[in-house]
């Protein structure tokens, strides 16, 4: 049979088949034989972004109900819901407010669990996430930023671990305290803690201060320290203006 007809024939006869709304439904329908493989491929490639208007509130419900709501998605949804609270339609604004509440409760529960386990590092990370989620509310952001610093306070006479340093640096960024971040980096340097990620953190501070020359120098340093993975592209960009 003509391969063209096999594939594109599905589109021509779209109405004869079950029309799944979600990718998971398409996968289940395909496994059950209610949808050809072309149908699954078509659904996958035609996925409507949830942020596209008109909004599909059922899609928002599905995502919020998911056990593994990833932080990146939560952050984007928070931004959207904050904008939506200003919508002229009361129902839409109310939905947005409730959704914001839901996301905050989701993380508040995790904070409570981490507190009960006395897991300081996890607690600090969660506070930091809450600070980022409340980026548009300076007072709340500041509160969570300070809590993150409190929770990640290093134990006396214990050497600073890299992950603690990075967490505290992120908290200072959230609190918009670049001087304190720089001071922490200097302390780490004095204590002999050297790592490409710390150099990159220093480069980030220079970037935010508009010191392009210093950024380029620090990128070279990070490269010589062996920065790899996703940072390699960034380093190459600053060194050559191109990404390899």
């Amino acid at each position: 049979m003509d391969p063209f007809r096999l594939k594109f024939g599905y589109i021509q006869t779209l109405d004869r088949f079950f029309r799944p709304r979600t990718l998971n439904a398409a996968l289940k329908a395909m496994k059950a034989g209610a949808l050809p493989t072309e149908g699954f491929a078509w659904t996958m490639n035609s996925l409507k972004p949830v942020l596209e208007e008109p909004w599909d509130f059922r899609a928002f419900d599905r995502i919020l109900a998911s056990k593994e709501l990833d932080f990146g998605s939560a952050k984007i949804l928070m931004e959207l819901f904050e904008r939506m609270t200003g919508h002229p339609d009361f129902e839409t604004a109310l939905y947005a407010a409730e959704s914001i509440n839901f996301i905050e409760s989701h993380y508040a529960k995790k904070i409570h669990q981490a507190s009960a386990l006395a897991d300081g590092w996890m607690l600090a990370r969660l506070y930091l996430k809450m600070a980022v989620l409340n980026a548009s509310r300076p007072s709340i952001r500041r509160y969570y930023g300070l809590e993150a610093l409190k929770a990640s306070r290093p134990e006396p006479r214990r050497p600073l671990k890299l992950q603690d340093l990075l967490l505290r640096l992120a908290a200072y960024r959230v609190l918009e305290q670049p001087d304190r971040a720089l001071s922490l980096l200097n302390q780490a340097e004095k204590a002999g803690v050297a790592h490409p990620r710390l150099t990159l953190a220093r480069a980030q501070l220079a970037f935010e201060a508009g010191r392009a020359g210093e950024v380029a120098r620090l990128m070279n340093l990070a490269r010589s320290q062996g920065a790899s993975g996703r940072y390699r592209k960034l380093i190459d960009f600053w060194n050559t203006g191109e990404q390899r």
Binding site: N24, A26, M44, R62, I76
Partner: peptide, 21 residues
């Protein structure tokens, strides 16, 4: 596949930079 499908659906960060958007 089910995991990937679920991730594609729910990972908004991946959706929002779509060409269609």
């Amino acid at each position: 596949l089910a995991v990937v499908a679920h991730t594609l659906e729910t990972r908004i960060a991946k959706q929002r930079r779509s060409l269609r958007f």
